[in-house]
Write a protein that binds this DNA or RNA. Sequence first.
DNA 1: AGAAGGACCAGTGGTCCGTA
DNA 2: AGAAGGACCAGTGGTCCGTA
Lengths: 274, 274
Amino acid sequence: GTHHALDALSQEGLSEEPVQQQDQTDAAGNNGGGGSGYWEAGQAKMKKQQQRRRKKPMVASVETDDDGNEGEDDDGMDNGNGGGGGMGTERQREHPFIVTEPGEVARGKKNGLDYLFHLYEQCREFLLQVQTIAKDRGEKCPTKVTNQVFRYAKKSGASYINKPKMRHYVHCYALHCLDEDASNALRRSFKERGENVGSWRQACYKPLVNIACRHGWDIDAVFNAHPRLSIWYVPTKLRQLCHLERNNAVAAAAALVGGGISCTGSSTSGRGGC
Amino acid sequence: GTHHALDALSQEGLSEEPVQQQDQTDAAGNNGGGGSGYWEAGQAKMKKQQQRRRKKPMVASVETDDDGNEGEDDDGMDNGNGGGGGMGTERQREHPFIVTEPGEVARGKKNGLDYLFHLYEQCREFLLQVQTIAKDRGEKCPTKVTNQVFRYAKKSGASYINKPKMRHYVHCYALHCLDEDASNALRRSFKERGENVGSWRQACYKPLVNIACRHGWDIDAVFNAHPRLSIWYVPTKLRQLCHLERNNAVAAAAALVGGGISCTGSSTSGRGGC
DNA sequence: AGAAGGACCAGTGGTCCGTA
DNA sequence: AGAAGGACCAGTGGTCCGTA
């Protein structure tokens, strides 16, 4: 196993490299294509895969069956180092995220938030490709980033994309889409205060709940109205927070109108102020 | 077990009665409400449940947990005959469908096609109720007739509704929605020729494929554009037929333009005549 | 034979928790 | 400790095939 000095450098992205980025892109006619130049050129590709101790065969369920065609090569999934049976290679985890300002590149073995958001854009591109393929084959066409899309991403070499991670930060990406200024301000503030990623992530909920409030508490409608956000499932926790806040607002409004008890059906269509 | 003489009468519907039709209707504020008076008044309710030999406990997984509230009573699922543990009661199957003309009531132990289509309307009403409940609770809201909706229908007493049946005839209902005249004509023709339900069902595919052709072969778009049809998944076989026909049409168009071989990228945007 | 539907199954959405 | 992600699980879409 190689263990380069490169390892120590800033490397937004990967411990495992995003191999054959081009291959997957032209797999379905190069649709989309917008806005990925920076990361692909500057960051992701300059790093070789590194390997550490082993633990499992790891390359077990390769899933070569489903759609091994469409112009992408099929065995490139594990990039050109190990060869053979896949034994002995150990994938490294992605570097953890840190709170970075907009435009800031993370140093050390860390990844920044621009890179995080870029992963969502990549998933969108993978979805577009899956959709193109599905339409071409006359199969049912996903409208969201589904398991199938994650599988496709992995098969296309984007092994650094995985479902738990993407679902974990969806609402952070949502804020970035819906109110970039607020998102940027939050990042700067949390970076300045030296907060970790977890607390920044937590803090992203509140402004989203406020946005939902301004849209009649319909968080699904908020997501669906945004072209890049509509392909993501609304996270359960965000949905629950919106529901709770709506109930609070309704109760507060009711308390204002009546005194508490016998108040005939106030349909409270007004905002409580969000 | 009771075995009435009523048994021999015409009874669109049921062997098992659609109990508590009212209960489920006002469960979520009586939305929809259009177009079900005929069947509910005339047919479905006039029949008592009959029971035959036993085979299984049958009332095993009653699913009382999920949402046993919202104004519908919870134990009415098995209607007021058996009582106790549910042992000893044996549900009868629905009577088989026969090809009937529009407006015609099936005689004997048969069900007609108006009744079949009415079941789709009922499912839509159940979906609307499930949606209302979900929105009220701040849970994710189904846009299609899902397993959850079938479960809700069953719980509401509509034990004659089940997934395999509804999925089996979806495309027949689609034709009824999209071109009622053509659907009616087909029914009359197949009735006159004494065809059975299976061959009528098969014959429903072709006119749908033609409709898809007129809409650029996008059968999903055709379904989604129709308010009552959009809640149903496009059946796999219909999707496949449309895809096959599209390929045929493209090939035919290509053959017309070129002689067969070297014809530079004809993008064939024209219709072949559908 | 023709038809209704219980019940199964592969792959889904969702996220926990063993891992580093 | 904070965080990444393999892997699990309940419930889904889909429909077969034992049943009547």
